[in-house]
Design a protein around this nucleic acid. Structure first.
Lengths: 126, 126
DNA sequence: CACGAGATACGATTAGATTCGTATAACAAC
DNA sequence: GTTGTTATACGAATCTAATCGTATCTCGTG
């Protein structure tokens, strides 16, 4: 589902937080900080600040009805992934999505993955 | 063909210059500036500075035997594209290349592109 | 050799990303 | 109400990217 905001590309730190929010759902700063702390050491106020900046950019929405605000992504993971791919296709593949796809596929692609992709191609080909 | 340097990700401006070098081949600052000027307005010294920075990062090599240095990409376009895709897969697709590929494909993919991708899948599947 | 065209080198500026310390506000519980 | 805990807000420091002006160097040519 597309959004109202205009193609704002999340930075690396922002994408890290978005990944957490997509995974655990709407969450407070505390919850996001707890989640990120499992894999990296980041200060609580750092997480807070970045979420505030993301809110300013409308990358997230927040519910302020309780003392601890609850943050949620503005856009779906799917939509954001598509945007990032579109961006990369433009900047590194002359705008060609199929070139991007073919570059992504190599000998490390497993049989199962190949089967899944074939299936999707069949559906698109109808 | 992989390279000696260790996965240095080009910035946006750097990638723009790399695209030009991959297209026109080894070139002087003047030539790169002429090429980029066709699509955007950028100062000559800006192009020079970025090429110098890229040289410092070993993103490009340069031939200093003439007064006007000649710059060339350190890595092939193919290798760089693969690196960028790997990076995006890690940061936005949980490391799954096949998820990335499937997200890249959609109804805008043409019959010809689908055929090309099928062909590649067949070769990988041997 | 002096000069002008055109090259590189370098420093400064601006903007954005990232980090975190400190101040302050809200609330629960005694 | 005072106090301790846990929030948010805000400002500052640091770092990188990107841009460009100015200084300086190198050459070919008169």
């Amino acid at each position: 589902m597309a959004r109202d905001n205009c193609n704002i590309k999340p930075t690396e730190a922002e994408l890290t937080l978005l990944n957490i929010l997509w995974k655990i759902g709407p969450a407070t700063v505390r919850q996001v900080h707890d989640a990120i702390s499992k894999t990296q050491k980041t200060g609580y106020t750092t997480v807070l600040k970045i979420l505030q900046i993301m809110h300013g950019k409308t990358l997230v929405i927040r519910d302020e009805s309780n003392r601890a605000h609850v943050y949620a992504p503005s856009n779906s993971e799917t939509y954001t992934q598509s945007s990032l791919l579109k961006d990369l296709a433009t900047k590194a593949f002359g705008g060609s999505t199929s070139k991007l796809v073919m570059r992504a596929l190599d000998e490390s692609t497993s049989k199962e993955e190949i089967a899944d992709i074939r299936q999707l191609l069949n559906e698109l080909d109808k």
